[in-house]
Amino acid sequence: MQLPRVVIAAVFFVIGALIAIPAIIRTTGDSNASTTPAGSTTSPSPTGTSPSPTTTRTTTASPTRTTSPTPTRTSSTPAPTPTRTTPAQPLTATIGTPSCPGRKVTITVRNTGAQAEDYAIERDDGSASIPGRIAAGATRESTLTLREDRSTRVEVTHANDSVLVRTRKANCKAAPPPENLPVTGADDTVLWARAVTGGAAMVTGIIIFWYGGIWPRRRAELFDKK
């Protein structure tokens, strides 16, 4: 067999192995990673209970004694003091969450009382308080713009009393993470195609090696001797 044919066959075989073997290993590795071991279950062991012996006791009746009733004393109790009830807060409020990209917060105030009420919305970011007046049984909404990436204390007050206090923070610059990450790398079809291509290259190298060993067996004369 000539040396060039052996080299060509070896090159085909090595190239085919380098293409096919990594693709097959990666395909089998992905299939093994997708299987999860099944958990084992244990059966509870039966427990037995044995009856405990019971004992009986006999008691003799003792003579009863009669006692004369003792006179009861009546004491005068002080009259209950009247309790004072504070009026219920006529205003209720809700403070929403910041919305991006405008960093807006919606504040809803509702008057459940029977008359109009004054209220105010205050913040701790140096802004002036926002006064408001709401009619009986009405609902009023106000919108605030918060600072970026800093906490702000928002409070709704009525008659110098706090109705609701919440701390809100606007973080609109950070991009939300994607829900579905893109698929990277080769899929199963590409891996199997690489495996087939590598196998074909290996078979080609084997054929060249085998054919180079059997050809030519004899050297034919190109011209007849005269």
Rank of each mutant, 00 (worst) to 15 (best):
residue 84 R to D: 04
residue 84 R to T: 15
residue 85 T to F: 05
residue 86 T to E: 12
residue 86 T to N: 08
residue 86 T to L: 12
residue 86 T to M: 06
residue 87 P to I: 12
residue 87 P to F: 06
residue 87 P to E: 09
residue 88 A to V: 12
residue 89 Q to S: 13
residue 89 Q to N: 15
residue 91 L to Q: 07
residue 91 L to N: 09
residue 92 T to Q: 11
residue 92 T to L: 08
residue 93 A to I: 07
residue 93 A to K: 03
residue 93 A to P: 08
residue 93 A to V: 02
residue 94 T to I: 09
residue 94 T to G: 14
residue 94 T to D: 07
residue 95 I to Q: 05
residue 96 G to M: 07
residue 96 G to F: 07
residue 97 T to N: 10
residue 97 T to I: 11
residue 98 P to C: 01
residue 101 P to V: 04
residue 102 G to F: 12
residue 102 G to W: 11
residue 103 R to C: 02
residue 103 R to D: 02
residue 104 K to S: 08
residue 105 V to W: 00
residue 105 V to H: 00
residue 105 V to T: 08
residue 106 T to G: 02
residue 108 T to M: 12
residue 108 T to D: 03
residue 108 T to H: 03
residue 109 V to C: 04
residue 110 R to P: 00
residue 111 N to K: 10
residue 112 T to I: 01
residue 112 T to S: 12
residue 112 T to D: 05
residue 112 T to C: 09
residue 112 T to G: 15
residue 113 G to H: 13
residue 114 A to W: 11
residue 114 A to Q: 15
residue 114 A to D: 01
residue 115 Q to G: 03
residue 115 Q to V: 10
residue 116 A to K: 11
residue 117 E to M: 06
residue 117 E to T: 01
residue 118 D to F: 00
residue 118 D to V: 05
residue 118 D to M: 06
residue 119 Y to A: 04
residue 119 Y to P: 01
residue 120 A to R: 03
residue 120 A to I: 02
residue 121 I to G: 13
residue 122 E to L: 04
residue 123 R to T: 02
residue 123 R to G: 14
residue 123 R to F: 00
residue 123 R to M: 08
residue 124 D to S: 10
residue 126 G to A: 10
residue 126 G to E: 06
residue 126 G to Q: 06
residue 127 S to F: 00
residue 127 S to M: 05
residue 128 A to M: 08
residue 129 S to M: 10
residue 129 S to G: 15
residue 130 I to Y: 05
residue 130 I to G: 02
residue 131 P to W: 00
residue 131 P to H: 03
residue 132 G to Q: 06
residue 133 R to Q: 12
residue 133 R to I: 06
residue 133 R to Y: 01
residue 135 A to N: 07
residue 135 A to F: 07
residue 137 G to K: 14
residue 137 G to Q: 11
residue 137 G to C: 08
residue 137 G to D: 12
residue 137 G to S: 09
residue 139 T to I: 14
residue 140 R to C: 08
residue 141 E to F: 13
residue 141 E to T: 15
residue 142 S to K: 01
residue 142 S to N: 05
residue 142 S to H: 11
residue 143 T to Y: 00
residue 143 T to R: 08
residue 144 L to P: 03
residue 145 T to M: 07
residue 146 L to C: 13
residue 146 L to F: 00
residue 147 R to A: 07
residue 147 R to L: 15
residue 147 R to V: 13
residue 148 E to F: 02
residue 148 E to A: 11
residue 149 D to I: 05
residue 151 S to E: 14
residue 151 S to M: 14
residue 152 T to Y: 00
residue 153 R to P: 03
residue 153 R to H: 13
residue 154 V to F: 03
residue 155 E to N: 11
residue 156 V to E: 00
residue 157 T to Y: 03
residue 158 H to N: 15
residue 159 A to D: 14
residue 159 A to F: 01
residue 160 N to T: 09
residue 163 V to D: 05
residue 163 V to P: 03
residue 163 V to Q: 06
residue 163 V to R: 03
residue 163 V to K: 04
residue 163 V to F: 07
residue 165 V to L: 13
residue 166 R to S: 14
residue 166 R to H: 06
residue 167 T to Y: 03
residue 167 T to S: 15
residue 167 T to G: 09
residue 168 R to V: 15
residue 168 R to S: 13
residue 168 R to K: 06
residue 168 R to T: 04
residue 169 K to H: 11
residue 170 A to P: 09
residue 170 A to W: 00
residue 171 N to K: 14
residue 171 N to P: 12
residue 171 N to M: 05
residue 171 N to S: 10
residue 172 C to D: 03
residue 172 C to E: 04
residue 173 K to H: 08
residue 173 K to C: 04
residue 173 K to E: 13
